[in-house]
Structure formats: structure tokens, C-alpha cells
């Protein structure tokens, strides 16, 4: 297992507080994402993955994701079973939607 952690400074208003949301599942080629309120002004993503040596790709995916979504003040935790970057991006997006959906 490899553990990765990224913190991105994000501009814009903080996401509203909501109950934690969970999307996806830990199954081969898939992952689960847990979203919770975090620290103001930043987006934190912590990853536990069974696929070693993909840190650079994770970082790129996370930065791209943080730039496209209103994720200021959110904390993401990921359990990954070897998902592709496309699946990761999809799940992260679903996670934000699920989390914000509960606040609407």
C-alpha cells in the first residue's frame, strides 16, 4: 500500500458544511471517496492506494480536480484499488456532487 497526501490552496467561498458523503466502492479498478468538511481555504486529498508509484499522476489529477470544482474547505479521503485517472476524476466529481447535494 502507498499513502499519498495533497493539499491545494483554493480560492472562492468555502463549501457549506454538510454530513460526510461516500461514493464508489473498493473493488478492482475502482475506488471509494469520502468527503467531509476540512480546513478553510484549502482542499486536502488523502489517498491509500494498492498501486505503487503513481504519485505524479495522482497529483496532476488532484490539482486539475481542485481547479474545476468548488472544493474550498473540503477534505477528501480515498481508498483506491487501482482505478484509472479517468475513474478517479469521475468519482471525485461524484463525491462533490453528492456532498453538495445534501446541502441544497
Amino acid at each position: 500500500m502507498e499513502r499519498l497526501s495533497y493539499e491545494v490552496e483554493v480560492e472562492g467561498p468555502a463549501a457549506p458544511r454538510a454530513p460526510p458523503a461516500l461514493v464508489g466502492v473498493v473493488a478492482s479498478g475502482n475506488l471509494e471517496v469520502l468527503v467531509e468538511p476540512g480546513d478553510a481555504g484549502r482542499c486536502r486529498v488523502e489517498i491509500a492506494t494498492s498501486a505503487r508509484g503513481f504519485g505524479e499522476i495522482w497529483e496532476a489529477v488532484v490539482r486539475d480536480f481542485a481547479a474545476r470544482h468548488p472544493v474550498a474547505g473540503l477534505r477528501f479521503s480515498v481508498n483506491d484499488a487501482g482505478a484509472t485517472p479517468a475513474v478517479v476524476t469521475l468519482r471525485l466529481g461524484q463525491a462533490v456532487e453528492e456532498y453538495l447535494g445534501a446541502t441544497r
Binding site: 500500500m1 471509494e32 469520502l34 484499488a81
Partner: peptide
């Protein structure tokens, strides 16, 4: 004891298997 409490299996990492939050 929902997923945010992260009560995961401590036995899987040694086998190189990812845990699940619940």
C-alpha cells in the same frame, strides 16, 4: 459507526489490499 469514523480492517494493508472506510 459510519464511514467517516474510519473503522477499517487493520489486517488488509499487510497483504497489500486496500481497506474500506466501513
Amino acid at each position: 459507526v459510519g464511514p467517516a469514523e474510519r473503522v477499517q480492517s487493520p489486517h488488509l494493508a499487510a497483504l497489500d489490499l486496500p481497506a474500506a472506510f466501513d
